[in-house]
Simulated scan of single mutants.
Amino acid sequence: GTSFFDAKEIKFLLDLMALLVNPKDMMAFIHVFEYARGVGSALSKEFFQCFLHFGQGNFMQGVLYPKVQDLPKLNPNKNVQLGLFDDDNEIGSAARFKLLNLESSLYKHPLLKHPKLTHDGVIFFREFYTLMRSLHTLEKPSDILREAINSSLYKGIVELLSIQRGRLKSGEVDEEKKKQAKERINRKARLLLDLSRQYKELRRFVNAMVLGGNELSEGEGVNLLTVHASKGLEFPEVYVIDLVDGRFPNRKMMSSIEEERRLFYVAVTRAKDRLYLSLAKFDRVKKIDYKPSQFLHEAGLVKGEFVEPEVKEKKPKRVKEDS
């Protein structure tokens, strides 16, 4: 079965906590907003960039008290890969959502101008907005988690997951199976709440839950982490090493270049004060020349245009015929 920390309901709660610890954690935000009907990872990324724009770089400000009222536009001087919109979409009108009876502050929120925002998306945003407004004033992990568990947003996620786990192969929902699934989900949430009571600081709680221990909670030293393990965490100094093409992105192992690009974003946004990017030009042992990572080119940190490596076609193996 799925381990405790891999359960979707636990990952959702921890992503919420991670977002409070580090509001620059785009991946945590995407994982939360992917539960909104009709909102995938690409649109979630757009929304995240919108909130940063609305808050002039401050995510929470952009969610709760936006200073900028216009949607961001594509910067022509920026790499297209890093831009928000590939064309000038017609700005939508908040009047589309008048029948939802939104409170005044939410009805005036600039995100409602986004042309791709649907009614379902607005309803999800309303729940997210309401929860963030109550969470950002709390400090104790147990208080934050209790508020999140009791929120309409989380209850909606629980209902969705319960239905999924109670669905039969025929497509029908077994109500008893759904009920049992909901009980297991609630039991896991209570366990996470019990674990949170051992911590006074949210950052330490998130660190311990993400890494499965207290490695980052006590003392000083260097933390050697994979990019995946660093999600939701922040450090005064971060060193991202091995930024050579073929390794980051890892063209042999990657599922898609976009996923590798997201991992690069996660890696470089872990630093609070200083970020060091490192690469080797030559391997003295293997006698191999390396090229800088594609992402360094995209970020404008390496001069010259990136040239995609040639993909060598594998020659079919000859099969010897029995004589």
Rank of each mutant, 00 (worst) to 15 (best):
R37S: 14
R270F: 00
L145R: 00
E310P: 06
R96G: 12
N207H: 11
G83R: 03
R184N: 11
G212D: 09
D120T: 13
R165F: 11
P141T: 03
E34F: 05
K177T: 03
A148V: 03
N223C: 09
S152G: 08
L277S: 04
N250T: 03
I288W: 05
E220C: 09
Y154E: 10
L225N: 02
R96H: 15
F4E: 08
G221Y: 05
V240M: 02
G38A: 08
N77M: 11
H119T: 15
F48M: 00
A95P: 07
E201G: 08
D194V: 12
Y65W: 10
M26V: 01
G40M: 06
A280Y: 06
P110E: 10
F33R: 00
E237F: 15
L153D: 00
S217V: 14
L153F: 02
F248L: 09
L14F: 04
A271P: 04
L74Y: 11
H31S: 13
G57E: 09
I30G: 00
L20I: 05
S196N: 04
L263Q: 01
Y129E: 01
M17P: 02
Y35E: 06
N150V: 06
M253D: 13
L191C: 12
E220G: 11
A42I: 10
K286N: 12
N150C: 07
S256V: 04
N186I: 09
S41V: 10
S256H: 06
D289A: 13
M132Q: 07
E218A: 10
A208G: 06
F29P: 00
R261W: 03
R204L: 13
I185F: 09
K178L: 08
F306D: 02
F128M: 05
C50V: 04
F29R: 01
L14E: 06
S293V: 04
N77D: 14
V244C: 07
E172M: 11
M26S: 01
H109L: 10
K8H: 10
E321T: 13
K67Y: 13
K303Q: 11
E127Q: 15
A18M: 02
E310V: 14
R167F: 03
D174G: 03
N186K: 14
P23F: 01
I144Y: 00
K291E: 15
E9L: 08
D70S: 15
Y65T: 15
Y199S: 03
D120W: 09
F97T: 10
P292G: 03
F33N: 07
S217P: 08
R126Y: 11
F97I: 09
A28E: 00
F85H: 10
M209G: 08
R37A: 14
E237W: 15
S152I: 09
N75M: 07
S255M: 14
D120L: 14
L233Q: 02
L82A: 07
A181H: 05
